Amino acid sequence: MEAALTQIRDQQQQTWDTFSPGWRKWDAWTMDFLRPMGTKIIEALHIQPTDQVLDIATGTGEPGLSIARLASQGSVVGLDLSVGMLAVAHDNAAQQGLANYAAVAGDACALPFLDQRFDAVSCRMGFMFFPDMLLAAQEMHRVLKPGGRLATCVWAAPAHNPWIATMMASMSPHLALPAPAPLAPGMFRCAQPGMLAGLLETAGFSGVHAEEVQSTVEFDGPEHYWQNMLEIAAPVVAAMSQADEATRAAIKATLFRKLEPLLVAGKLSLPFGSLVLTGEKG
């Protein structure tokens, strides 16, 4: 990879290692939140008991851990840049008694596996952070066996994701939030319809299909939402690092005013939307 892309990869690794304690704390909540996309990925892969599966950007282990239960006579490799996140995945596998799941450190743009090694590849919420998305897709294609299946997902547009957009809108009057550089790694990098599908086709995948998954995520009120955003939402944490105490208080007040009308019996439900894409290696 070019030096600039290597720098992006290293920054991503440092970022997710920094976030790993927060993700461990919020793991059960986060896995419930992301389960609809994980379920769609698993359904699309048609996992067989003897399958060998690669779960890229495995984070704290899902959907790889769920896949490992289905591939009971096969194995799952969960790959991630972040050693801190992989430590959580390893602990989760041990707690669930999944001896056929292995957490491995590695780069999606330079997969440390032989050609045609896997029957299926899953990748939940990873593509938008890869330094070179086409190279990552080509690597996934390379390590799949002929007829092998890929299922991945990314966030849909901000308008479909009030769960994070509400916080970002509350910060913008109080902080200078620069517009992201075109195609720079970030949550909504792959949100444009057709963008990731075209990239997968360019990498050699056939039968590429995209589907939007919409649901809601629940918080135990505004304070629960605030703490969640400050501890695991990467763009929020990055932006709030600029804020002094007075600015943080002003942002919190703005946020709570936005959330107040949305409360039902003290609970807060916010919509989210993602794009799930599937394809095959011919």
Rank of each mutant, 00 (worst) to 15 (best):
S66F: 10
S66T: 07
A120F: 01
A250C: 06
D80V: 09
A210P: 00
D17Q: 11
I164D: 02
V213E: 09
G97T: 14
E139I: 05
F219W: 08
A105N: 12
L262T: 09
R142F: 07
M37N: 13
Q116H: 14
G266C: 15
Q116I: 00
N228E: 03
Q227H: 10
M125P: 04
K258E: 10
M229L: 02
T58S: 00
G61F: 03
R248T: 14
W155L: 01
M195E: 09
A159D: 05
F113C: 15
L275T: 08
L114T: 11
R69C: 10
I56W: 00
G282L: 10
L230A: 06
G198V: 14
P146A: 11
Q214S: 04
E218H: 03
F33N: 09
Q192Y: 01
R248C: 14
A210Y: 01
S72G: 05
H90D: 15
L114G: 13
L79Q: 10
S170Q: 12
P49K: 15
K25L: 13
G74L: 05
M240W: 08
T18I: 04
W155A: 02
P162H: 00
A102H: 13
A157F: 06
D27E: 03
V237N: 06
K40F: 14
L70E: 12
R24V: 14
D27F: 02
V104K: 10
P21M: 14
Q14D: 06
G126K: 09
L200W: 09
P112C: 13
I8E: 09
K267P: 15
S274A: 10
I232A: 04
D80M: 12
R24Q: 15
S66C: 11
A203E: 00
G59L: 00
N100W: 08
G61D: 00
M187R: 03
G148F: 08
E43K: 07
L230M: 07
D27A: 12
E139P: 14
F272L: 02
L200S: 07
D119L: 03
A108S: 07
V88Q: 03
E231R: 07
P112Y: 07
A57C: 14
R24I: 15
D80K: 12
P180N: 13
L81T: 06
D91Y: 06
A184M: 02
V236G: 11
G148K: 00
D51L: 08
E245W: 02
E218S: 10
R257K: 11
A157K: 12
C123F: 11
A243Y: 02
Q13V: 01
A246I: 08
S122I: 06
M133G: 03
G204R: 06
E245R: 01
M171N: 10
A239Q: 11
K258F: 02
Q95H: 09
G59H: 02
R149L: 08
G186V: 05
A250R: 04
V53K: 01
T6P: 11
